[in-house]
């Protein structure tokens, strides 16, 4: 159905770079209704991410070696990297949120990289997914902020180091930026992943034309390399921003 609608615009070339993001039932036709419990390609690729994480962190570390196996040392590196990030960015008292942050980081990282497999489905390219992740962080941070600091958490919006006259204005700006956080947090991740995948599909469409196909193939390769970087960096950025927000919640004073 998407084909006809876009067909005229591109004049002969068939582009539907967004078709890869369609959520469809795994068993059945594309047109079938998708209810909340339907097993879809989302289910499949999230399940694969979960299985990959279990394979790495449970089966990979089964040996519990003092001298680690290869898989175990990958798990240990990811553990150490995330642990240090939480400790350095959010502070020592944020360590109890480490499993939560590790869960977010590993899910996004694995979903991003699994999404880069040809013919796969990138779950993190969907705003519904990234918005839930970002809102979960936003709600956690806000609740933790109020539970830990009570009304002192509002000091986050009251910049006491600024001149008194400027403080109300700064408070409004801080308040707006606080509520924009989940939006930017989710769109940054979803947008990056979606854009990269869509661009690759556009170049794949160009590859059908003989004259420019070598250029298109080289471009796809280059963009794929870039997307490998983006997949890691976006997962890292999402996680480190979570740590930054958590630090604000635990230590709201500027």
């Amino acid at each position: 159905m998407a084909t006809e609608a876009h067909g005229e615009e591109t004049g002969g070339l068939v582009f539907h770079p967004l078709d890869q993001f369609i959520v469809k039932p795994l068993f059945g036709e594309i047109g079938d209704p998708v209810s909340w419990y339907t097993i879809t390609n989302v289910t499949l690729w999230m399940a694969l991410a979960v299985l990959a994480i279990i394979a790495l962190f449970v089966f990979g570390t089964r040996g519990r070696g003092i001298v680690p196996s290869r898989t175990q040392s990958i798990g240990e590196i990811l553990y150490g990297f995330t642990y240090k990030m939480v400790e350095d960015v959010a502070g020592k008292d944020a360590i109890k949120f480490f499993p939560y942050i590790m869960t977010l980081f590993m899910f996004i990282l694995f979903a991003n990289y699994l999404g880069l497999l040809p013919m796969s489905f990138a779950t993190t390219s969907h705003i519904a997914v990234t918005a839930v992740l970002a809102l979960a962080v936003f709600l956690t941070v806000t609740i933790v902020g109020f539970v830990k600091n009570g009304t002192k958490f509002l000091g986050l919006f009251w910049v006491s180091s600024a001149p008194l006259a400027l403080r109300p204005i700064l408070a409004i700006i801080e308040l707006i930026s606080y509520f924009v956080r989940p939006v930017s947090h989710s769109i940054r991740l979803g947008g990056n992943i979606m854009a990269g995948h869509a661009v690759m599909k556009v170049f794949a469409g160009f590859a059908a034309v003989a004259a420019i196909s070598p250029f298109a193939v080289v471009s796809i390769t280059a963009i794929y390399g870039l997307e490998m970087l983006v997949a890691g960096v976006q997962a890292y950025v999402f996680t480190i921003l979570t740590c930054v927000y958590l630090k604000d919640a635990l230590h709201p004073s500027h």
Partner: peptide, 16 residues
């Protein structure tokens, strides 16, 4: 955009 197909949101959120 398939990202804005709201009828799939409940499905995605549930499995997420």
């Amino acid at each position: 955009m398939p990202q804005l197909a709201f009828e799939t949101f409940s499905n995605q959120i549930f499995w997420l």
